[in-house]
């Protein structure tokens, strides 16, 4: 973007970039430092010794994968519908979905519990997965619809002429084009489902169904508060997300450039 000539201006730009990331980096470093206070690496051993690390990772993984699957299915279908198909009251539906973006998780917990117990889903992972998906879908539809808007209609027209029906066009022509936006949907949904805290805490009571965000609370109780343990647990919790992001970084960026928000 910047047209840079000469060694000094390039160095200057590099310096500017470095200065800009320092405030972002510093808190991360302080956090890592804190997790090594007191017992040092022993804090990590302490987290492992709670004995629930494998269980909570497994549950969080199940919740994240399922949420991603539901969000992905709903988003792709709906975004395609909103972008390419004729729907009675299309914008009304679209805005009705977007309006759901404004709902804070904390205030719908009690009503959600009523829903969950009516369907006998309390203490099942699905009682966390479905609300998480519902809270995520508005945002992903927003970015995916923009992506589909960018897919030329001509590609699909050609297929239609060849006699393919809507589902076939979607499956064999549209979906393969959506790989970039898929990465964006996965990353965003993973962030919100892996980090979810209030919903799992409310909906899942059984010890065997707890999730990673509950790990730090193992080190706090009314009259104790083991900060080093809390931080070590937090670091452990964050590692998979950071890894997934790094893994998808390239396609994630590509997906957003194609869909972006316009």
């Amino acid at each position: 973007m910047f047209d840079i000539h000469g060694r000094w201006s390039r160095l200057g730009l590099q310096l500017l970039a470095t200065l800009m990331i320092l405030p972002f980096l510093a808190p991360l470093v302080f956090g890592l430092q804190g997790s090594l206070g007191g017992l040092g690496l022993g804090n990590y051993a302490k987290v492992w010794n709670t004995g629930i690390v494998p269980t909570v990772f497994m549950n969080s993984a199940i919740i994240s994968v399922c949420t991603i699957a539901i969000v992905y299915a709903c988003t792709m279908l709906a975004a395609f519908g909103f972008s390419k198909l004729r729907i009675m009251g299309r914008e009304v539906w679209f805005w009705a979905i977007l309006a759901a973006l404004t709902v804070p998780e904390a205030v719908i917990l009690t009503p959600l519990f009523v829903v969950a117990s009516n369907f006998d889903l309390y203490d099942e992972l699905i009682a966390v997965i479905l609300p998480l998906a519902a809270l995520q879908v508005p945002f992903t539809i927003l970015i995916a619809r923009n992506f589909f808007d960018g897919v030329p209609n001509e590609i699909m027209e050609a297929a239609r002429v060849d006699g393919a029906n809507g589902l076939q066009v979607f499956w064999s022509i549209v979906l393969p084009l959506t790989r970039p936006i898929t990465a964006a949907i996965i990353v965003f949904t993973l962030i919100s489902s892996w980090n979810s805290y209030l919903l799992p805490m409310l909906m899942l009571t059984d010890q065997s169904k707890q999730v990673v965000t509950l790990l730090p609370s193992f080190f706090t109780s009314q009259y104790t508060n083991d900060q080093t343990g809390v931080l070590a647990a937090a670091v452990i919790t964050a590692v998979p997300e950071v890894l997934v992001y790094l893994l998808f970084q390239k396609s994630f960026e590509r997906g957003l450039s194609a869909g972006a928000l316009k």
């Binding site: 988003t75 279908l77 709906a78 909103f82 390419k84 729907i87 009675m88």
Partner: peptide, 11 residues
């Protein structure tokens, strides 16, 4: 209405 089934799951 042809697009409605597509947005139905999300709705």
């Amino acid at each position: 209405l042809s697009g409605l089934p597509w947005i139905l799951p999300a709705i």
